[in-house]
């Protein structure tokens, strides 16, 4: 117990240190960027005294360390500053855009896991066979074909040519403003509102980006599962399990797979973090109003507060998921104390 407490506090302090480092880095990047946030806010033609006044209002006339301390104390109060572009506090914007990304990423991860793990296990069991080769080619394609290309091809076929896929965004224009926002997840909110047509519409809008993102992630998950499983199947305990008279299915799923599951947690956590970071390209192609799009739009417009805020959020997600994987690892693998 005492050991556990000790390792937990060690984990926590490393998390805090990482987050502090991340804050310093993003803040500095925001300040050394060769754009002037004041000009971005007031425009090129603003008179000199306006520029000076706004600069003082934004606190940019003070030395960098003072600015940083000021920013840090704001952060600790949950204040990420204002977005020049949306005229909203960054925190409000993130709360509005992040659920869209979260919905996309979670659905994609679920699909990728449900397909990727069985495929990887299947390929490992049939190592060297035609099935194995076919799965490997499928994964290689998922890994190497750029997402934007797949997205475009998908849109071209299912939206433009066949007309069976819905248009861009998260919902049809007729449902715009009809669904009260509760969780921010369109699929959940439509269900909560009891509007099944809107629910179907939300799912239809999700289908293409989710499948494309899932394919990309699935390729990675399946490849890692295959590699881990091939290793596990060589274990002596697999021979023991067979010598006990267990069926092939049981040997694979209840003896070899559990030893691999622990390793897969890390793979899944990193995949999920990658997806939550906002699949910038996918969100752009499908006009999905998520964090990736918010980040790129802000960056294009030199709106630095949202950029720093979103970057911090992404960092927080990575650190958080890593921590979660670490804790799960400890809970699930009896060998790790």
């Amino acid at each position: 117990m005492k050991n556990r407490l000790k390792s937990f506090s060690a984990m926590l302090s490393s998390v805090i240190l990482t987050l502090f480092g991340l804050t310093v880095l993003t803040f500095l990047i925001g300040r050394v960027m060769p754009v002037d946030p004041v000009i971005a806010a007031v425009g090129d033609n603003a008179p000199e005294d306006v520029i000076l006044r706004v600069r003082a209002e934004m606190g940019l006339d003070q030395p960098i360390p003072v600015q940083f301390l000021h920013y840090l104390s704001q952060l600790l109060h949950g204040d990420f500053g204002m977005s020049v572009l949306t005229k909203n506090p960054v925190a409000t914007d993130i709360a509005r855009f992040f659920p869209a990304t979260f919905e996309l990423a979670t659905a994609a991860l679920l699909l990728a896991t449900l397909v990727g793990i069985p495929l990887g296990v299947w390929a490992a069991v049939r190592q060297g066979s035609f099935t194995d080769q076919a799965i490997r080619v499928l994964c290689l394609a998922g890994h190497s074909v750029p997402v934007f290309m797949l997205s475009m091809i998908s849109l071209l076929i299912f939206y433009s040519a066949l007309g069976i896929a819905p248009g861009p965004g998260r919902q049809d224009i007729i449902y715009d403003g009809m669904i009260p926002t509760v969780t921010g997840l369109m699929s959940v909110d439509t269900l909560l509102a009891g509007d099944l047509d809107a629910f179907r519409d939300a799912l239809a809008h999700m289908a293409q980006p989710v499948i494309i993102l899932a394919y990309f992630s699935m390729a990675y998950i399946a490849r890692m599962t295959r590699a881990f499983m091939i290793d596990a199947l060589k274990g002596e305990y697999v021979i023991t399990a067979r010598a006990k008279g267990l069926s092939g299915l049981k040997v694979v799923w209840s003896h070899a797979f559990p030893t691999v599951a622990v390793q897969l947690i890390t793979v899944l956590a990193l995949t999920y973090a990658g997806l939550l970071e906002g699949a910038v390209v996918t969100e752009t192609v499908f006009s999905w109003p998520g964090i990736g799009q918010y980040l790129t739009t802000s960056l294009m417009n030199a709106d630095m507060n949202p950029v720093i805020g979103s970057t911090l959020l992404v960092g927080l997600i990575y650190v958080g998921l890593n921590l979660l994987a670490d804790i799960l690892y400890r809970l699930l693998d009896p060998r790790v104390q």
Partner: peptide
């Protein structure tokens, strides 16, 4: 029954 050489490897580590 079949007894293998080294229980360190022949028993399943996570069960």
């Amino acid at each position: 029954g079949f007894i293998l050489q080294d229980p360190k490897y022949s028993l399943n580590p996570v069960k």
